[in-house]
């Protein structure tokens, strides 16, 4: 036995009634007959172990996300990039077709602020990359918004109504998931894209919703049976009201995380389409197009493919890091560090 002691050394019983909070610690007794310490800190040696800090889901989430250094850094980076891209006219040192005759095929240099070098015509690649980033971001944002709307709506409908609606929608989603996305995109883009960022975005979005639809459906299926949803239904709330007021808020987390995945994927897809010549039309310098243009001279002017490529990677990586931060912040089992 761990602490054997002789009966005569037994600690003396000391009866000190403290019900009224005289002296020592303030004790309140509630209905269950439990003593709770007043959290005044006056008697630090006394506590009953019930003072667990209550934090709301949202606070917890925010705290965890803000602690995620990588995600916060990435967020900042994306913010700067976005601001720069959408103010390209003011930020870029040159216009995207402006030619610096003196400095053709120049590697990255501070001279004349050709930070990403110039091409054979003397066009400044730093400026072209900024304009190109705008195209990428435009497309990506369109994709993210539309595919989120479609995915959320279809997923919600499938999960809420179940039955044959669910079956058809999900078979359809399955199909889109296994099909070679790029091939279908190329067909669409070739016949309907017409090189416009908005159209390209819509086309990508039409093929990017299934993963989100599945996730939202899953959450809705489980929420359907929850008491508060049943209660809302019993209280006569309409389907739409239940779906949007009561169920949708609970899917915000997965939707946000999925949005980052879609954003990153859209950036890469747009670049690939542009690289293959079926994306946004010239002269708008899409990032993929810049890389394609730099290909012919990539052995001598390496910066022409490296710089736009690194930009794509940096943006996609930053988005993925933000997504990772969100996922960690939402995951209750995740360890905080």
């Amino acid at each position: 036995m761990s602490e054997p002691s002789q009966p005569d050394e037994r600690p003396k019983a000391q009866d000190v009634p403290v019900r009224t909070g005289l002296g020592g610690a303030d004790i309140v007794t509630d209905d269950a007959g439990l003593h709770r310490a007043d959290d005044s800190g006056e008697a630090p040696e006394y506590h009953d172990g019930t003072q667990i800090v209550a934090r709301s889901q949202w606070q917890l989430f925010r705290r965890r996300f803000f602690r995620h250094k990588l995600a916060m850094g990435s967020m900042l980076f994306l913010l700067i990039i976005t601001l720069a891209a959408f103010n390209a006219e003011r930020v870029a040192p040159y216009g995207f077709n402006e030619i610096d005759v003196v400095m053709r095929s120049t590697p990255p240099t501070f001279e004349g602020w050709h930070l990403f070098g110039t091409d054979q015509l003397g066009r400044d690649y730093f400026s072209r990359v900024i304009y190109g980033t705008r195209v990428s971001l435009q497309v990506a944002v369109v994709v993210a918004i539309i595919s989120t709307l479609i995915g959320t709506t279809l997923g919600a409908v499938a999960g809420y109504y179940r039955g044959w609606v669910d079956a058809i929608l999900m078979r359809f989603a399955d199909l889109i998931i296994i099909v070679p996305l790029l091939a279908v995109l190329l067909i669409f883009a070739a016949f309907f894209g017409q090189g416009q960022p908005m159209r390209i975005g819509v086309i990508i979005a039409l093929l990017s919703w299934p993963s989100l639809a599945r996730i939202v459906r899953g959450v809705f299926l489980s929420l359907r049976e929850k008491e508060y949803v049943q209660a809302a239904r019993a209280a006569g709330a309409g389907d739409l009201r239940i779906m949007f007021r009561h169920m949708l808020p609970n899917t915000m987390g997965p939707i946000l995380v999925n949005m980052t995945l879609v954003l990153a994927a859209a950036i890469l897809l747009e670049a690939t389409l542009a690289f293959l010549g079926l994306g946004v039309n010239p002269p708008t310098p899409a990032l993929g197009l810049l890389i394609n243009a730099g290909r012919s001279s990539m052995l001598t002017s390496w910066w022409l493919i490296i710089m736009p490529g690194l930009t794509i990677v940096a943006i996609a990586l930053a988005i993925n890091f933000v997504g990772d931060g969100l996922r960690d912040a939402l995951d209750p089992t995740q360890q905080e560090k």
Partner: peptide, 21 residues
């Protein structure tokens, strides 16, 4: 793997080509 997710494969292919040269 994050890098792998975030890299357009055509760009990686071009890098390999440049590297070999």
């Amino acid at each position: 793997s994050f890098l792998g997710f975030s890299m357009p494969s055509f760009w990686f292919a071009l890098l390999l080509q440049v590297g070999v040269v």
